[in-house]
Design a protein around this nucleic acid. Structure first.
Lengths: 230, 230
DNA sequence: CACCCCGCTATACATACGTATAGTCTGCTG
DNA sequence: CAGCAGACTATACGTATGTATAGCGGGGTG
């Protein structure tokens, strides 16, 4: 059986590591509640009791998965950026499946309400905001909101990977589909969907709604996003 | 108790309607598995047995919620577009909370694996693709993928509303936060994040990866999205 | 060798859940 | 008035799950 989570450090041939890897995968696939301890134990090839022996409880197992996912992502990023591994053409292809699985786990955790995933989301928003301030100053009137929307959209792609893959006819967690998605993503990031005129119209409409809210504060309001799909 | 799902048609004062409304809300908040029939019955002020009496099973209740959510959305859209209600300044503020709840329910269903939500996603992709073909022909080299990414991103915002709201300090399902998000969204749609040079670089990199995949088909590959937050 | 820590299994227990069924009350109809 | 249909409740049942505990076996240490 292949270990998709990878990085077989010497300690990682233990049953504890197998349990954690299986949990990571099943949690990502079925959600926290959808993956039982018995299922995880079976996938790891151990008894259910051993899961409790090593991790104390399901919550403990989840915490361990959270910590491992974050640590793993940080190490890979360090290797890529500081270690100069980006120049190595084999590095990204080798680590990419692991990265995608880890992201998928964290994205699932955000929907299922994981504290680690939540703080991960906040970290990403913070990083995105800093990156925007450095590389695209003045890009948006509300950089915080812009960064948050950006991160939520990206994370949403992973959370909805099943449907996105179905619509594309290729798994976005596999090379082919991911490549197709990435290309559309670059298109999306590089060519504006709304003309300056339409954007100005939308902003004017928001102003109007805001004035309306101020005069009738009890009345809930807010137009739907200015976009054509709906 | 106020009925946030609204549209109190004459039949909607019945216990059956109260159960369906409570289920819609609890399913959206906690997920399908997270909301038990007993919880829903309590929220609706009825016994658990009555839920089964009216809907047969939890699956049946979910199907009813799906059908109701889609029907409700279609009716509101019909009223807005065909009925000319968009000119009525009170229409959008009044229906908006309902729309958001319905979308949130459907977004949750997509993560939890609802067939109705899945087909809803596919419908939205289809609509977005048609809209793009009509209003922005030639906008993307792969309109299908572009439309799918667009819809997934939008839906992801709702699926991750909890974290987005926390990052913004305001509930995006309430007027104030939704307004702030909408503004960032318009910024996002109207001003390109990637310069043409960067986009060209990214596309060139994708070409390279594709050639690499073709020569080493067993090696999984694909760069992460060309974006600065990560 | 004797001992014991530790990885590990097997099994038991309480709970919560979806489901099923029996029964009560109310309003309508003949 | 008799009777029936349907809305509704109370309660029981089987199962799956998280949790807890008792016990087994092997390898290192005195």
């Amino acid at each position: 059986m292949v270990q998709p989570v990878g990085d077989p450090r010497f300690e990682d041939l233990t049953a504890r590591a197998r349990i954690r890897d299986a949990a990571l995968r099943l949690f990502a696939e079925r959600g926290i509640d959808g993956a039982s301890i018995r299922d995880i134990a079976k996938a790891a090839g151990v008894s259910g009791g051993l899961v409790r022996h090593h991790f104390g409880s399901k919550e403990g197992l989840r915490d361990a998965c959270d910590a491992y996912a974050l640590d793993r992502l940080m190490r890979i990023k360090e290797q890529a950026v500081l270690g100069g591994q980006l120049a190595n053409p084999g590095f990204l292809p080798a680590t990419h499946p692991t990265i995608l699985l880890l992201y998928r786990y964290l994205a699932r955790g955000m929907v299922d309400g994981s504290k680690a995933a939540a703080s991960r989301f906040d970290d990403m928003v913070e990083l995105a905001e800093q990156w925007l301030a450095r590389h695209e100053p003045g890009h948006s009137q509300d950089p915080r909101a812009y960064a948050a929307v950006l991160v939520a959209m990206q994370t949403g792609l992973l959370a909805l990977h099943e449907h996105l893959s179905r619509a594309l006819g290729a798994d976005i967690l596999a090379p082919e589909g991911h490549l197709r998605m990435s290309r559309a993503l670059v298109d999306f990031y590089s060519t504006p969907l709304l003309s300056p005129e339409l954007a100005a119209q939308a902003h004017a409409a928001f102003e109007q709604v805001e004035r309306l809210q101020a005069s009738q504060p009890r009345n809930p309001a807010g137009p739907s996003a200015a976009q054509g799909a709906e």
